[in-house]
């Protein structure tokens, strides 16, 4: 008796719709992705607990920022009004980039009415010149 062979069923998964979904997802990610790197400046602000931030003496260069004025002095006694451009020149002249960490400290005192815009300009300037910012907390 001859046995009849069953024809093999060809199983196929339709992947057409699968690719459609994938391309929709690609379009979504293309539209939401931004490859532009943000602009800014990395700043060095030591942690509150570190010893370098506990005490600053009168010989540490200081920047005092108010809403209208910027004052700078390499010591406490030599504080004087200064423009932002002049401050940049003075800080670069100090060659902070090549100094030891403790000699790179700049004490920054900011008044309550100083906007973030002004604070940002001063802080990024100090950091660009190689300074390490010490935030002053009044006792």
């Amino acid at each position: 008796m001859s046995r009849k062979r069953r024809a093999k069923a060809e199983a196929e998964i339709d992947v057409g719709a699968f690719a459609d979904i994938a391309f929709l997802l690609i379009i979504f990610f293309i539209l939401t992705t931004s490859f532009v790197r943000p602009l800014g400046q990395e700043v060095r602000i030591p942690q509150t607990e570190t010893p370098e931030n506990r005490e600053v003496d009168d010989q540490t260069p200081s920047v005092n920022v108010t809403a209208n004025l910027i004052r700078f002095g390499e010591t406490e006694d030599s504080m004087a009004d200064i423009s932002l451009d002049a401050l940049r020149d003075r800080l670069f002249q100090m060659n902070l980039m090549n100094a030891e960490d403790q000699d790179r400290m700049i004490v920054l005192e900011v008044a309550d009415d100083v906007t973030y815009e002004r604070y940002f300009q001063v802080v990024t300037l100090i950091s660009d010149a190689g300074g390490i910012i010490a935030i002053v907390e009044e006792n």
């Binding site: 943000p38 602009l39 800014g40 400046q41 990395e42 700043v43 602000i45 030591p46 942690q47 509150t48 607990e49 900011v110 008044a111 309550d112 009415d113 100083v114 906007t115 973030y116 815009e117 604070y119 940002f120 802080v123 990024t124 935030i135």
Partner: peptide
């Protein structure tokens, strides 16, 4: 436009958390 009492606590908290802070502008 924010003033010191609004942004300084944020900077201090980040500094206290040991973060390397990069100010975006």
């Amino acid at each position: 436009s924010l003033t010191r009492p609004e942004y300084m606590p944020v900077i201090e908290a980040l500094s206290g958390a040991g973060a390397r802070i990069a100010l975006v502008g």
